[in-house]
Design a protein around this nucleic acid. Sequence first.
DNA 1: AGTCACCTGATT
DNA 2: AATCAGGTGACT
Length: 267
Amino acid sequence: MPELPEVEAICRRLKPQVAGKRILGVEVLRAGSVKPQKPADLVRLATGRKIQDVRRRGKNILIDLSGGLTIRIHLRMTGDVFVENAERRASDRVVFELSRGRRLVFNDPRALGVVHIHTAKEAERLLADLGPEPLSDDFTLERFVAEARRSRQPAKLFLMDQTHVAGLGNIYAAEALCRAGIHPARPVNRVRTGRLEALYFAIVSVIRDAVQSTTISYSRPGRFREAESFTRFVYGRENEPCCLCGRRIRRIVQAGRSTYFCPGCQK
DNA sequence: AGTCACCTGATT
DNA sequence: AATCAGGTGACT
């Protein structure tokens, strides 16, 4: 489910729940969800450590432990992380036992997500290819435009690449392109500079709005739902009229994924 | 740049 | 039965 705003919401909810708590034990319920290490390594390295911080980098959740270790969780399509003390579900993949029966759970129905533990040094290396955080000072107009000039990728794939800017996925890439008036299949180096600048600002505002409007709320008992008030102009709206020009939203397939766009607004 | 593989569950 | 799903990495 998650792109940057959803992962951010999960981290924000998680941090006050687990910061300062100790990991008393680790249960790996699906070995393949711990990669590339052996599950036993995760158990051995995490057990007994204190959780110091919960951070996000791109779509990665980073859980800093005492002793300079970091647990990295990538949710891929259907992962979720939450604290509970309820019964285990079939789709729970890794469980970190905290005190008083509370459990930090990595749940992932499709089992595409992964949990990894490494030193700060390794974490840095693994995240080195990630582009700048769109809401940070590292994400500059100059750098973004310069990279776009050098790439022949279709605009949407350029945005989802993660190396030019971190955290955009299928929804927010489409929404940013719509707001900037760029056709998703257009080679990004053939987009006029003025529109690339508009795209830069569209990314920042789309992500800012989505972060602000995405919250994670419990729906008892212990399950999460995401509630968001972010308005999608195009994503998931095939054949609906565009809210700006009235033309019907179209769906195409790029790199095997649905792309939605407005043929009137995005040339 | 396209296609597949990784998985499961919901929907048509 | 077939298609689709808010992701990514490994192949051509």
